[in-house]
Amino acid sequence: MSAIASFDSVSKKYGRAPALRATSLNLHRGVVGLLGPNGAGKTTMLRLLSTALPPSSGRIVVCGFDVTESHADRVEARRRIGYCPQEVTFPRGMTAFAFLDYLAVLKEWTDKGRRHAEVERVLDLVHLGDRGAMKIAKLSGGQRRRLAIAQALVGSPDLLILDEPTTGLDPEQRASLRGLLSGLAGTVLISTHQTEDVSALCDRVLVIDAGAIRFDGTVTELLATAAGRVHLGPAATSGAVQTWKTGTGLVRSVGGQPAPDSSVVDPSVEDAYLLLRSERHTPQGVNP
């Protein structure tokens, strides 16, 4: 299966500070989750892939077009990319429909009738079909977030890049977004702090830390890294990475040496992520 997008030894520096170390990976169809702490390089990686940011070195190919090669290739790639940044500053006084109409013009939807129909379609996808005529200033935070996602969906892109799309959404809206993303035909790359989104939605997980990919595999493979290392007992385990008292009064310990009266429990994606973070893995980075 050919890759929709690929990084070949891509790195990015801001001044002298490395934001992303030389990284190689291929993205195929499906939903890929990008996990990592703040400042790990998630947003840099997404911006590089979206072509909003040029790399310091390396080669990025999207849908067969080398975005680092020529402007013409970059424009071709952009016709196939939908990108929703982490934070969107909306124009004051614009309606939801007018905002999407404007972005659709920038995405080369020149026929007014088809463009307006497309705007209606993406508004419906994010359940804002009845809010098109409403000023953005009057929309709630969750509705604005969905509007930002809607603009990325214009034109049904082959590669959809979403930077923390579920921030500000309530559980029902998050579930609805999961349903939408899981039904898309192309490649979806989402960065998130919500580990439950990853376990519920993603075919593949990338864990990035300090500008390097620390894990690349399926959710099952990620969970396997924490198997037998999460315990529940009356007291915290010695040397645990994280411990907290659960609602039952028992203490859940991630990592460490288990106490004799504690029992092993199934790890969550969050447990596996915390354990990964606590260790210094050799970067994997390459996915064939």
Partner: peptide, 30 residues
């Protein structure tokens, strides 16, 4: 109901021969 009717600057630009798409781009955002 939803589609915005062209604003005054948009209508003026279109009368001056500016393409409708360009008018949307120029006058987008307050």
């Amino acid at each position: 109901i939803s589609a915005p009717s062209p604003s005054l600057p948009q209508r003026a630009m279109q009368r001056l021969g500016v393409a409708p798409d360009d008018a949307v781009v120029i006058s987008a955002a307050d």
